[in-house]
Design a binder for these strands. Structure first.
Lengths: 219, 219
DNA sequence: ATCAATCTGACAGCAAGCTGACCGCCGCAA
DNA sequence: TTGCGGCGGTCAGCTTGCTGTCAGATTGAT
């Protein structure tokens, strides 16, 4: 698996590079966005690790441009603790996961494995569930053959269910998934997003277990 | 943790088996892919160690088929082929890690620990009891293969029994478990919930000991 | 047989969940 | 800058079905 690491901190960058290399992955490490752009113009990467503060620009607009161009390479954002709002923005911009600095290198390996596994299987694996066809890599859903567009939050939520089909997920678990960090959602946000998802995907897709949580309905 | 070792070299296989067993894991060792397929048809494994060259076929297509079927059991490849192309092919096929022979047994233990940790919380241990299959993490119960849905209270109660299989639990103990704090349960709530559980799970699951309490029936 | 303990069907109160509506915010375009 | 449009968090009123309670039936011990 080829990984592009975009990080200007030389100490952290070297540590991450060594960790990933130790996992048997191949890593290219750049410290600037222009170098990243150049690297991306070549053969594709399977995963990107993106720092948000770089000497020649910020990571979020960079990611946004990337996604606008149609690039669906999985991205894990590396961000410092004091950039909470950036993380939410990052999710909106199309990031797949977050790591908050300072982070445990073993956990980084785990996240990489998890994101990679999500996209494993060479072409785009299509998950069919009821009348739905889901392409996780392309972030597209067809319902009865017709395309459905989901927002960033809706995707994050739907993915959580698809990754553990049949498993019950509590609201707390889903909040952790959507907000990656213990940000304070004080209202019925999850309920609202579930409601919006159901409206788009159909009523039977997500089932409620009163007092416990939600789970993906039987296909 | 249950590990399936697929390795035709009897010397290496025995060494690996003994090493893992020494770590306190339980190992099943097969030397052929068809035996592996058979082993996998039973109850799930938490990890697979897969040799790439076996008497009745190659490991990579085997793994590819496994993944295509939706099996996400972590796989560590054991290979004598130090070729990069094989490594990449293996990882593409869905392997989580690899070891190049000859390898240090202590390192194998470390890798096993690492992969297992990565999946911690993922592989849901299944408790079988009579005709029931219970997945505590997913909060799902199958009765004679058919799903049963429990409410929040029913889960709490059932869990209390599962955590202490065979042990007698008084009504007072169960009330403490269900209501956590000294709330006032003034009626036969526990009896009612036990009744509801029995109706959903079958009559023999929870046994009454008149005047004493309840216990989980012999599976 | 008698009595206490337990079982279970029925029911209503209420908390959990649903959803339409509102509005602030951000990114984009002029 | 201003305006526009879409996303997402919050709220309020409504709906749903879980759960505690009770009463009559049943069981088991003596």
């Amino acid at each position: 698996m080829r990984i592009l690491l975009i990080e200007d901190d030389t100490v952290l960058g070297a540590a991450v590079r060594d960790q990933i290399a130790g996992d048997g992955q191949s890593v290219d490490w750049v410290t600037r966005l222009d170098a990243a752009t150049e690297a991306l113009s070549g053969t594709g990467y399977d995963l990107m690790l993106l720092d948000l503060m770089l000497p020649d620009g910020r990571g979020i607009p960079f990611l946004r441009v990337l996604r606008a161009r149609g690039d669906v390479t999985p991205v894990i954002i590396l961000t410092a603790l004091d950039q909470i709002s950036d993380r939410i923005e990052g999710l909106n911009a199309g990031a797949d996961d977050y790591m908050v600095k300072p982070f445990d290198l073993a956990e980084l390996s785990a996240r990489i494995g998890s994101v990679a596994r999500r996209y494993a299987g060479n072409p785009n694996p299509i998950i069919t569930h009821g009348g739905l066809e889901v392409d996780l890599a392309a972030r597209s859903v067809l319902r009865e053959g017709r395309p459905v567009t989901l927002t960033a939050r809706e995707w994050a939520l739907f993915e959580a269910f698809l990754q553990r089909p049949g498993q019950l997920l509590s609201k707390a678990q889903l909040e952790d998934k959507l907000y990656a960090f213990g940000s304070e959602v004080e209202s019925n946000t999850i309920e609202v997003h579930v409601s919006r998802l159901r409206k788009k995907l159909g009523a039977g897709v997500i089932e409620t277990e009163r007092g416990l949580g939600y789970r993906l309905g039987a296909g």
